[in-house]
């Protein structure tokens, strides 16, 4: 269970942001390429230096060590990184039901990373992130490399996950239909400001 609160949070290219994501809530963020969406997510995950306050369940980020924070505030980047040969070597404890939900065979755990398609990489990196049990999810175009059927499966998995675990989700997407399907509130970046989309 996790809520995320931003107070005068300063990410690159953006004016200070005040935002609250309740536990179990999903909000989407869109805007033109280069407007600072990914950089906001990176700053929230503490990958880039930034100023202002951000807290998880009302506990300020500075009270967590950086690895603790990143384990709890999980970031899924559009391009995933893999550092070992086999998929399974990247998991602490792979959750087999997640493979089933995304209709990936259990044997995927033994696949070679170099032979994965971009869609497989994206789905497997989502499973890898969820297996880490984060309390907040920051998703950067989580379905960009997927066809319609797989997009629907990923959306269903995330909806199910946030309901069961009460995680807050901040989802960057370019697709207006997806925005309507997955979120309670939507934000658009315009001239460095966040404007709520009705």
């Amino acid at each position: 269970m996790g809520s995320l609160t931003l107070k005068q949070f300063r990410a690159p290219l953006l004016e200070p942001i005040d935002l609250h994501l309740q536990a179990g809530e999903c909000q989407t963020l869109s805007g033109p390429s280069g407007s600072g969406k990914t950089r906001l997510l990176r700053a929230l995950a503490d990958l880039d230096p930034c100023a202002g306050e951000v807290s998880l369940n009302d506990q300020e980020r500075s009270t967590f060590s950086a690895p603790q924070w990143r384990s709890k505030v999980g970031l899924l980047l559009a391009e995933s990184g893999w550092w070992l040969e086999r998929v399974g070597d990247h998991f602490k404890q792979p959750q087999t039901e997640l493979f089933e939900q995304l209709e990936l065979p259990k044997e995927a755990i033994n696949w070679e990373v170099s032979r994965l398609s971009s869609g497989e990489r994206q789905r497997l990196s989502l499973i890898r992130l969820l297996s880490n049990q984060p309390q907040v999810l920051l998703l950067d175009e989580a379905t960009a490399n997927l066809d319609q059927a797989n997009t629907a499966k990923v959306e269903a998995l995330i909806a199910d996950w946030r309901e069961r675990h009460q995680v807050a989700v901040l989802w960057v997407t370019h697709d207006p239909q997806q925005r309507k399907r997955v979120s309670e509130r939507s934000w658009l970046i315009e001239s460095g400001r966040l404007r709520e989309v009705s």
Binding site: A45, L47, A66, P67, Q68, R70, S71, G74, L75, L77, E79, S80, G81, W82, W83, S125, R128, L129, N132
Partner: peptide
């Protein structure tokens, strides 16, 4: 060259 791999590990909570 391998920044993506390094950051992938950081994201997962590695030191």
């Amino acid at each position: 060259q391998r920044r993506q791999e390094i950051e992938a590990r950081l994201i997962l909570g590695h030191t």
